[in-house]
Design a protein around this nucleic acid. Structure first.
Length: 150
DNA sequence: GCCAACGTTGGC
DNA sequence: GCCAACGTTGGC
């Protein structure tokens, strides 16, 4: 089983939104590296941190579970959707998503600032300069250490 | 295949 | 709102 960190802007979709829905499609990803991770590396049952980005206190707010294999993201075909991709064909979808299901909220968020200050997370990819991937693989040792901070 | 221009991400 | 990083696009 693998571990992940998945970023979302809480104004757009937050851990509370996922809690209310129980399971939701993680749609709107338009990055090939992430698409390939969805397709090749993510498996149902994997666990993922829910990370809030571009907000007052960026950090990890909860835990979710990958609930499906990768399948085509329907929003790419919807001209009204934010992430509509006119170049993607139904016969040959360019973008994929996975379903995620709510597991729990952390008792308090593990903030980005807190993780930056933690020497044990010196090599955590989230903290690497210039990192912009919205989905990041998390090593077991980092996963367990972050949970121990809760 | 190179690379400049442009767009997006995301912390601050 | 600014700006650095970096992915994508498209002309050549």
């Amino acid at each position: 089983m693998a571990y992940w960190l998945m970023k979302s802007e809480p104004d757009c979709f937050s851990i509370d939104d996922l809690k209310a829905k129980k399971t939701a499609p993680w749609d709107g990803v338009r990055n090939y590296q992430v698409r390939n991770m969805f397709r090749d590396d993510m498996k149902p049952g994997d666990l993922a941190f829910f990370y809030h980005s571009s907000c007052e206190v960026p950090g990890i707010y909860g835990v979710m579970k990958i609930a499906s294999v990768a399948y085509p993201d329907p929003t790419q075909f919807d001209p009204k959707a934010d992430h509509y991709d006119p170049k993607s064909k139904k016969e040959e979808p360019r973008w994929l998503l996975v379903d995620v299901s709510f597991q729990r909220k952390l008792k308090h968020p593990i903030t980005l600032a807190q993780m930056r200050d933690d020497r044990k997370l010196a090599h955590f990819r989230l903290l690497a300069p210039g990192n912009r991937l919205s989905v990041i693989p998390v090593g077991k040792e980092h996963w367990e250490h972050i949970l121990s901070l809760e």
